[in-house]
Design a protein around this nucleic acid. Structure first.
Lengths: 214, 214
DNA sequence: CGGGAATGAATGACCATTCATTCATCGCGA
DNA sequence: TCGCGATGAATGAATGGTCATTCATTCCCG
């Protein structure tokens, strides 16, 4: 079949052939996933062939299907791994930081550091993952919501503590915050210039907390 | 040919068959474009067939190619028309408004009103147009830059006038501003709830100007 | 040897695009 | 007013090329 639909995408894509040979399997799986990031970043998901991914990973086309259900599953796996890593890292980094403003700074920095570290991953996350409305809906209703919740909570804490204004909806503020970071990342990824993305984190947080007015 | 590449996308797609019979031609062209928005919004660009667009437009498949060079050209045309309209409307609406803060409010409102008016258009603009890195690069280097420039100018004016902080880069602030609006739109488009998107404009501007801190 | 892992040629859909044909309209001469 | 050829818009079946996916076969390690 040559079926492009995202409908059949399953969330249970991480484990596969959970046989005895986990370590070598994991190695190869990773190689394929890394190759997919590279190829998708360069040509875009729909313009990429599974055979290209296989070639870059140094395996045969059929091998991809020993580790992934379908081409879709490649994209979904990249996405799930990245989001899971990001959210785990975020939670860990925030564990010992009670101050709301410091938490926001931390989130901003982690967000931009992660994407700024790997341009190809940034391309896939900022562009290729947003392929279709179907995919976006799944994405936004799960991981993005979790991520927004983390931001919203920091903001609400700040409001409770009295350091943040109470007359803005914490949810709206969280969306604005995320949108600002997202746009910084997209702009960086599309820019020719090789500036340091993570360095923008503090600037953005300063602006959002201090406001543009004086 | 069954070529998906965005490379050959041409900007000169608006005029076509500029013969004596302009009115009927434009009508049909519009119908096809409207159908394309509808179909792309529902299934996603790559999952949509040209034949579907034709069916929804009430014409035969071949007819699409009398008005558009290719399937790509449909997407490009939607995008160019939308951006052109938005920038024209923006310039006009800003003409008699000298106050920087009022200008920003105006921009925010127009931005969210336009997308909030037509959910299908919003889907195409917020998701489908961001298909591939190739397309994003073309997009961001032309229209998006123009749009960001309009925002940046308002901010720089405010800084010159002394109503806005001078210690933030106007360009960064413009990206943050755009990112915030963009995220509000995306969230609205993905949300089940039918709230009024344009109503968020003032809230966002208040937050960005006043800041989250107190 | 035995068996799982890997291979890559072959398969079978799918679908953008083309183009021979049909259809509708119009100008013009009688 | 009618008839008739000319024009070009519209049609949709056919084409051709592309790939995702499969699976019979081979490889390699223990």
């Amino acid at each position: 079949m040559n079926d492009h639909s995202f409908i059949a995408m399953s969330a249970t894509s991480t484990r596969r052939l959970a046989a005895v040979k986990a370590p070598p399997a994991t190695d190869k799986r990773d190689a394929i996933l890394r190759a997919a990031v590279k190829v998708f970043a360069r040509h875009g998901y729909f313009q990429s062939q599974v055979a290209d991914v296989a070639r870059v990973a140094g395996v045969a086309a059929g091998t991809v299907y020993l580790y992934f259900r379908s081409k879709d599953d490649l994209l979904v796996s990249i996405f799930e791994r990245t989001m899971k890593d990001a959210i785990d890292e975020g939670r860990a980094a925030l564990a010992g930081v009670p101050d709301p403003e410091a938490r926001l700074r931390r989130i901003a920095r982690l967000h931009l550091e992660r994407l700024g570290r790997d341009r190809e991953l940034a391309v896939v996350v900022q562009v290729e993952l947003r392929q279709s409305i179907k995919f976006m809906e799944r994405f936004s209703s799960s991981y993005l919501q979790d991520y927004l919740t983390i931001i919203r909570r920091a903001i609400a804490d700040g409001q409770d503590a009295g350091t943040f204004r109470r007359d803005v909806n914490a949810n709206t503020a969280a969306k604005v915050f995320f949108g600002a970071l997202d746009e910084m990342a997209t702009n960086w990824m599309l820019s020719r210039r090789k500036y340091d993305l993570a360095a923008e984190a503090d600037v953005v947080v300063d602006l959002l907390i201090g406001g543009l007015g004086r």
